[in-house]
Every structure is written in C-alpha cells, then in structure tokens.
Design a protein around this nucleic acid. Structure first.
Lengths: 158, 158
DNA sequence: TCCTTTTAGTACGATTTCGTAGTATATATG
DNA sequence: CATATATACTACGAAATCGTACTAAAAGGA
C-alpha cells in the first residue's frame, strides 16, 4: 500500500514525460500543445471549453495554448454557426500530421503493456483501471476525513 | 483499448487536481509546492536533485520551488557535511503539519479505492499497476515505431 | 421588447516553469 | 599536486500558466 502511494506520487506529477523526450524536443512544443493536438485527433473537432475540460486546464490557459497552435498553423478556429460565442477548434493538415506522429508514441507505450501483459492480465488491468477512474470521477472532490474503511481482517494477503 | 487511450489522455495531464480543490485553495500553494512537501513527508530528507527527480521537474524549477517553500518557512535547506555542494532539504514543523494535512487527502483517495474494490481486486490492481509502471520505467524512452508484439496465442499462464 | 442573467471565450498582469549559463565543490588524470 | 572534468546547485531571462476582469452573444423573464 505504501508502494501504491509512492507510485502515485512519483508518476503523478509530470506524466507524459516520455513523449517529451521523443517528439517535443524535435518540434519545439510544450506538452500542453502536443496533448491538445492529440486530443483533437482522438476526439475530433472541439470547442475551447471542451478542450479545456479535457486538458484539465482553465479556459484562459486554453486560450493561450490555442493561440500558440493557431499561430504555428497546427489548428484553426472558427465561430460556430449556431452560437457565435463558441469557437470550433480543428486540426489543420500539418497539425493532424504532427498529432499522428505523436500518437505513434502513445500507441507504442500501450504496445509495451500488451507485450508485457498476457491478454487476461490486460483485460483485468483495464477493467480495474476503469473502475478506479470511475470511483474518483463519480464521487467528486475528495475530502480530508472520509470515513475509514472498516478494517478487513480475515484476508491472508501477500 | 480506445478507452484506455482516452483515460490516458484525460487523466494524464493534470493529475492531483483533486488535491488542489481541497487544500491548495485554502493555503495558497501550487501543486508543485504541495507535492514537494508530501514527498518529503513520505521519503524523509532529500537533496535537491533527488527531489527534482522525484517530481519529474528540472533542477532549476526545483530551486524555485524550494526557494518559495523556504521563504514561507515550510522547509529548511542545509549543506551536506560530506559534500558541500549538496543541499539537504528538510521539513520544518509547519511544513510537516501541512504535509500531513494533505496526506489525509491522498489517503482518503486511496481509501475510496479500498472501499470500491474487494481485497482481491485491490491486490490484482496493485500487482498489475506495478508491473505496468515497471515496464515503462525499465525500458527507457519510448520510440515511435517499436516493433509490434508478436501475437501470443498459446500461452495460458498465471 | 427591454433588461437581467448566463455562457463562451479573450485580455492581461502576476506567478510559475524551464532552458541555459554560471559558480563552487568534488573527483580524476597526468 | 596541479589542472581538467564532473557534479550539485543557483541565477536569470524567456515562455507558459493561471486567476480575475472584461466583452459579446444567447437565454430568460417581465
């Protein structure tokens, strides 16, 4: 359990570092910029708010990122027809190409998992991971003194 | 598999957001500052380099963070006796108190998992998670075109 | 319709992060 | 033992992030 906590700490702070090493250095982009492109590739066109929420960043930060990317010609922004306030963000050709390049790296990362895990393990892992994600997502912000789990004694583990 | 990729994207960018909501807002700290305190609480005194590595941040960033925290009186830094170049970073009383407060939140987060999972699931999950972490950690930077897994068909292992 | 409120996004200044250059101590090499 | 190289960290300026104030379009309400 200590270990899980440590893993939490260690890998939680600046994830996606592995992508930086490979692609970011060549093309001079921040992780945020890159992530934005990848999200757009994966999810298709999105509004600024949707992007911000997906990135977990404030909208004002998203504005900065989008401005950079637009300036570099990786994305385009156009006001929605239905609602003039919302801006639809779209990948340009160049942007799409870059995103696909980066996607390779992410897929390679997932590929490693598939290589290391048996299919059964993989399935187990994904199931549990989603269950975990759901727990955190659904139950909202975490408060300091949530009631402690009733100690389960009988189990003879590890 | 798509789902895993999406989870990767969504939760990967700014983790620990759940802590911000609770503690950061009260005490006016960045996530980095808070993480640093928690790491020190968990691992004990550390050098600047060790901290930086644990945080996944460049040493220069670590210097900034440490300067802030020192100024606020949460940590103290002293040159090591053996090597005058290395600075040993230590939590002050106040720093330790803050870190412990935050630790409660992390533990509450883990508690949720224990609540949602059966003990068997928990054990499985941890095992797989560490295996996954190990894969990424041990094999170094990920290259775009790693050779695809040979489909493992026959193996019926563990 | 006119006015209020809400929603989507931008502007901007303050703070944080980060790459690079610099400093000082330790270690290696001749 | 002198000097070159490596290591641990800091300084500093440039870039990124973020909170708050602001603008403009949409939605509600009288």
């Amino acid at each position: 359990m200590q270990q899980l906590y440590e893993l939490f700490l260690k890998s939680g702070l600046r994830p996606f570092a592995f992508m930086s090493d490979t692609l970011q250095l060549e093309k001079k982009m921040t992780r945020s910029d890159l992530s934005t492109l990848i999200i757009l590739l994966f999810k298709g066109d999105m509004t600024m708010s949707e992007l911000a929420s997906m990135m977990g960043a404030p909208l004002s930060t998203m504005t900065s990122i989008a401005k950079r990317l637009e300036h570099k010609g990786y994305i385009a922004r156009a006001a929605s027809a239905q609602d003039q306030r919302v801006k639809l963000v779209t990948l340009t050709q160049v942007g799409r190409y870059l995103a696909k390049e980066s996607e390779q790296i992410m897929l390679a990362a997932l590929g490693r998992l598939e290589e290391a895990f048996t299919p059964e393990e993989m399935e187990q892992f994904m199931t549990l991971l989603f269950k975990a994600a759901k727990v955190f997502h659904d139950k909202g912000p975490i408060m300091p003194h949530e009631k402690k789990t009733v100690p389960k004694k009988i189990i003879i583990e590890e």
